[in-house]
Design a protein around this nucleic acid. Structure first.
Length: 646
DNA sequence: GTTAGGG
DNA sequence: CCCTAAC
């Protein structure tokens, strides 16, 4: 299920490349895997090296993971990110980052938190590695944050409103990327899509890193005794843990912290002092946390954090700020939890709120997408720990939403194709046609052939052809003997049509299924509009049906003639008939019989129109506009008895 | 549920 | 094609 990725920071301040890579890879890998995120469990040695977790450790982790998973779900429900990332900084000075992914999907927030943590860690590493000097102006930090947000925004979705959490996440991602791409060579991952915006962000990030770089003090959850961890856990989760696994506890706490980011920043009493101090000491760690937090919202606190972090980097210590910002250490996390929870909680709401908003918006755009987002956000977070910022959906879910997969702090943007398809039926049909040789085309061909036989050869395959042909056919019969001839003609047509319908049906179904285009209505509701052009065959059928059943008996006509056309409703028939009627009367009386095909505008064969008119007359459906005179002109042809037509 | 009419 | 009123 989940593996824990441990990233160590050596006191040296450098990340082991391997370690980083692992983390990144692990993170990245998840996206590949998609749902199941597999993390490698790594243990951080005292020296800061990453050591593959032993079976026992794995077991522990597994328990932890499971446990977490259960919790994770809860967390996810709460809106927290599934993954728990705990960053520990051992006294030795190594920073340990643990990422846990519960089976449950991680909330965006959690992911964000993770990412942030990871970023922080990375940052710290970077700092250590690249810069020993921590000093950077907060501006940098802020800019970074903002930049991160933006990038994130871009990457995820073009969310107009920056979501605190999301931004934070984004920032975190960015950070990670930036770290990876930029300062952190260690991170195997090259910054990718996310980085785009991140580039600037990365630069900033690098700055941050420098700022963040942990000077010395590291707070390590590791340092904490199990009991302490338990307490922290209890405080964090409100329940006691029986788990004895320190790592697990750490992770959990880290998770809570991540959550806590959302929840509260209050420092943990027990560890607060240590943590706070440590945080203070470790600007980098705090910075990370701060960045996370800040990312969520550029709240004052965040700013403070950043500032503090910056300050810390500079050497200035803001205990409070530091504590908040420094989440890396378990202590820090704790602090966050306790102290910042409130802030985080506040933020969370914003997040969710934002998400919801985004979702709503996205929904408006794409219901499905929005839904998916919702699911993700609330509890359905995909195992992959995908973070979908509402923004993604928000941006334009339709086309795609970028999905951020954070694994082990690596951020991946995965474009998600919105479920909603707006392609038109035709396309689908075309596609279907491709797939199904026998599709509409053939049916049409058949119908065309029939038509050709009956009347004249329409060259066109498509409806146009049919139509063109049809008129001739109809025309002949109508001219000579509307009833009889028409019947024969019609019959073939119908047969063809029938054939076609079957074939068409698939297409139609597909269209229905896939092609349904949802159009946002002014109301905001989605309106599914699947447009299927009426084919000549259909028109013919309709005419026939009307002749048989009489106009107005649409349901019956549908049953009889359009049984195969699932996509044609009685209303559709009615509408079409209405249009036909209109068209038929619109035709110049003189032209009626013969050249009926109007200018190219009216694809419908004159003959058909004539029939329509006849039928209309018979049924006295003549549109008011068209005086009887017109009908009269057509009247000659009109004679056809309904029975005859039938 | 179907039909008619309007948008 | 969709929506709604009316039957």
């Amino acid at each position: 299920m989940e593996t824990v990725v441990g990233i160590e920071d050596n006191d040296d301040g450098r990340f082991e490349d391997s370690g980083v890579d692992r983390s990144s890879s692990a993170l990245s890998s998840p996206k590949q895997i998609s749902n199941p995120i597999v993390y490698k469990l790594v243990r951080v040695e005292g020296d800061g090296k990453l050591v593959p977790a032993t079976d026992d450790e794995v077991m522990e982790v597994g328990d932890f993971l499971e446990y977490e998973n259960s919790e994770m779900h809860v967390v996810t429900n709460t809106g927290q990110s599934l993954e728990c990332i705990s960053i520990e900084r051992s006294s030795s000075g190594k920073l340990r980052l643990e990422c846990l992914e519960g089976t449950a999907e991680a909330d965006l927030g959690k992911l964000n938190a993770k990412l942030q943590i990871l970023q922080k860690v990375k940052e710290e590493e970077k700092h250590r590695i690249s810069c020993g000097s921590p000093v950077h102006s907060h501006e940098n930090i802020d800019s970074q944050c903002s930049a991160d947000k933006f990038p994130v925004m871009d990457g995820k979705v073009q969310s107009e409103t920056p979501c605190q959490e999301i931004p934070s996440i984004a920032s975190s991602f960015n950070y990670t990327h930036s770290n990876q791409s930029g300062s952190i060579d260690q991170c195997s991952r090259p910054s990718e899509g996310v980085i785009e915006s991140g580039s600037s962000a990365s630069a900033v990030y690098s700055n941050l890193k420098s700022d963040i770089s942990m000077s010395d003090g590291e707070i390590c959850l590791d340092k904490l005794s199990i009991r302490e961890l338990h307490e922290l856990f209890k405080v964090t989760f409100g329940r006691e843990t029986t788990v004895k696994d320190k790592q697990w506890l750490k992770r959990r706490i880290a998770m809570s912290l991540t959550n806590s980011c959302d929840v509260s920043a209050t420092t943990f009493i027990i560890k607060d002092n240590k943590i706070v101090r440590k945080f203070e000491e470790d600007s980098s760690g705090n910075m990370n946390a701060g960045s996370l937090i800040s990312s969520e919202n550029m709240t004052e606190e965040d700013v403070n954090f950043k500032d503090s972090s910056a300050v810390d980097a500079c050497g200035i210590d803001d205990n409070q700020v530091v504590s908040e910002t420094r989440s890396e250490n378990g202590l820090e996390y704790e602090n966050y939890q306790t102290g910042q929870r409130a802030a985080k909680r506040i933020r969370r709401p914003t997040k969710r709120y934002i998400e919801e908003l985004s979702e709503n918006e996205s929904r408006e755009h794409n219901p499905r997408l929005s839904i998916s987002n919702k699911t993700v956000g609330f509890g359905h977070v995909s195992p992959t720990s995908n973070v979908r910022p509402a923004r993604n959906a928000f941006s334009e879910a339709r086309t795609y939403s970028t999905r951020l997969d954070s694994l082990g702090g690596s951020n991946v943007q995965i474009p998600c194709v919105s479920r909603v398809r707006r392609s038109r039926p035709r396309k689908d049909i075309a596609s279907l046609m491709k797939f199904h040789p026998t599709g509409m085309g053939e049916a049409e061909k058949l119908s065309n052939k029939l038509l050709e036989h009956s009347s004249d050869a329409g060259s066109d395959f498509s409806d146009k052809v049919l139509k063109s042909r049809m008129p001739a056919k109809f025309h002949q019969p109508s001219s000579s003997e509307p009833v009889k001839e028409q019947c024969p003609v019609i019959c073939p047509i119908e047969l063809r049509q029938e054939l076609r319908p079957k074939r068409a049906d698939p297409s139609g179904h597909t269209s229905d299924d896939n092609n349904i285009v949802t159009v946002p209505t002014a109301k905001g509701g989605m309106r599914r509009k699947h447009h299927r052009a009426w084919t000549l065959v259909e028109v013919i059928k309709l005419v026939e049906g009307v002749s048989r059943c009489g106009a107005g008996r649409w349901s019956e006509i549908k049953r009889l003639s359009f049984a195969s056309y699932s996509y044609r409703t009685s209303v559709d028939l009615k509408d079409k008939w209405r249009n036909l009627l209109k068209a038929s009367f619109a035709l110049a009386p003189a032209d009626e019989g013969i050249n009926s095909r109007k200018h190219g505008t009216a694809p419908i064969p004159e003959k058909i129109l004539l029939r329509v008119r006849e039928l209309a007359e018979m049924n006295s459906q003549v549109p008011p506009n068209y005086s009887s005179s017109q009908l009269a002109s057509g009247g000659g042809s009109v004679h056809g008895d309904r029975s005859g037509y039938l």
